[in-house]
Write a protein that binds this DNA or RNA. Sequence first.
DNA 1: AAGCAATAG
DNA 2: GGTTCTATTGCTT
Length: 684
Amino acid sequence: MDTSEDEIEEDENEWKTSPSLQKTLGPTPAHRVILHFDLDCFYAQVEMIRNPALREVPLGIQQKYIIVTCNYVAREQGVTKLMSVTAAKEKCPQLVLVKGEDLTHYREISYKMTELLMSYCPLVERLGFDENFMDISSMVENRLAQTPGTDAVSFKGHVFNHLTADVDCGDHTRLALGSHIAAELREAVHSKLGLTGCAGIATNKLLAKLVSGTFKPNQQTTLLPENISDIMGSLSGLRKVPGVGHQTAKRLQALGLVSVKDLQLFPLSDLVKEFGASSAQRLKNLSLGVDDSPVTPTGAPQSLSDEDSFKKMSSTKEVLEKIQELLSSLVERMHKDGRQPQTFRLTIRKYSATNKWFSRESRQCPIPNHIGQKICSGCCDDAVVQLLSLALKLFHKMVESSTAFHLTLLNVCFSNLQTREAATSGKGSIAHFFTHSTSPRKTQSISSQSQVVHYSYFHFFMTPGAALHGFKRKQSSVVAEEGPPPPQKVFCSTASSDCGETNNKTTQRLPPNVDPEVFRLLPEDIQKELLSPVYTNSLVNTSTSSATEAEVSHTRENKTSLLFTGARNIEDIKETVDPCNLTTVKHQSAAGQSLFPGDNVMKEGRLSFSRSSDCKFPGNVDPKVFSELPPDVQAELMAEWKQQKPLLKDPSSRKPGRSLMTKDKKAAGKSSQTNNLFKYFKPS
DNA sequence: AAGCAATAG
DNA sequence: GGTTCTATTGCTT
């Protein structure tokens, strides 16, 4: 293994400790150094860690009837990715199979990997579960500034096409330093997570990705600028260019283009006719090894989904049971994440003779707040039941259940994930937030260093320490954290008979939002739960007041007042306190109002926090500028960052004269998100 | 905002 | 090119 003996720990936080630099760089050419990490047969590695005995044997990871990946022992015997199980068994009768449909462990370890990389440098972008890009330009600059002489720095690992023991024509110091960093990071990943993988070091993402695969497994390769055309030319076809998928390849082929060289030489103007200006230029650039796209920190996922495929499903009952199964695990995942999903999507795949297999169809809808809150607060079974009802409606938009149907896949998805400001111990910290007001979303490489940088301040309700140590943050708060079991549960189990219900007629007992069709098909225990008074009284449009409801509200009063002492404002209360009963929440809001007549101050404090939603980081931020910030600020920014989605900035929205309050309200609906990435790590 | 296509691992 | 189980981005309406 070609890793360095250096202890990377010594360089830990290197990206934070910026020397005096950069401002002096002026219009220097882009000195980006980009790493691409690619773990070796990731799923198989995870299974071999869980069961070391598997290292010795040919191992395949099976999903349905497909081997999705396999270890190198199996590869030596001819097993390949995406081979059918039968074919794989023929090739390799001793092949050991592990089921891999449940991605939970892979996902967790995948995020640990990303998190580990982020602890060295914040600019980490995930690509699938097993690959990460890093922009290590800042780290390299730091080392450069600390490097004594102008002596040539040697490379760690391979150098692509470095056939000649070349003279140093050109300055490769940065890439050489990059190769050292890559070696150290690979060693860190190996020692801390037990994972091996490849790294590619180059001047952009495209090249880093391409070069990382040139020596496998568990090796690294650096690409020098003078070898760019070599590596592009070495690709066996256009399809090998990242960004050129099947469809694009077909369209290119229709133009007579099959090799990378063909595309390099093809007139841009002709390409524009087929693809439009922007795609054409992008494709052309890719063929030349040009890629200005920034490493955009990925952060926490923007959607969570669960799906299952099968040979045939043709009854509504089966469909509902499957959806329920999928929802159960999805809701649980969502609950652990802590954010509240705002939209729900159901997708199906219909079998049809004409369109033999593919084609997915989906329908989505907003998630009513009370359901979202149940997810967050842990009333997961309740949430599942109500989501099931939503799902059935969506299903009927796609399938006429009166006529025959044949489904081969179901998928449920939560998106538009919103954080709630967890007023954890009331310790808000302030993140210094800055954006380039002038920067569109162009390149970060050539970007003129003279751009004006605006700094603004945001309240940030997160304890950086907790986040940085990988603790799972409970966004839903005080009640969930230190209270007794969720009230809904309590009531479900205790108040199973009547609590002074007025509408207890057996035919009328179903809660308003539960579709009778759904109900009929539900498991018995769920049905029973649904029939408990809490449900029949508390679901959505309850205009009727009931004893149960009053009781619920009442028992919550004490907690409510406790909460007020720690909560920042009414909105927080609404969100953190009781999730299970809408009317209860209303009570509390009202109470809050009276308790905090002067909560405008509070609101303003929170306002600035929510404003973070229109600050995007990655594209706009010069890593060098970033590296000059104080470490603690950087840490908070990173955390915030991870949650941000690029929003186009409306310059007028920055006008000082504008009401912060209205903005807050807008932004609050949007995506003021706090860090969740760390949730994917088990508390250590 | 909804739905889909394309791309990716 | 699809098979699996995800996830993201961008186009179109």
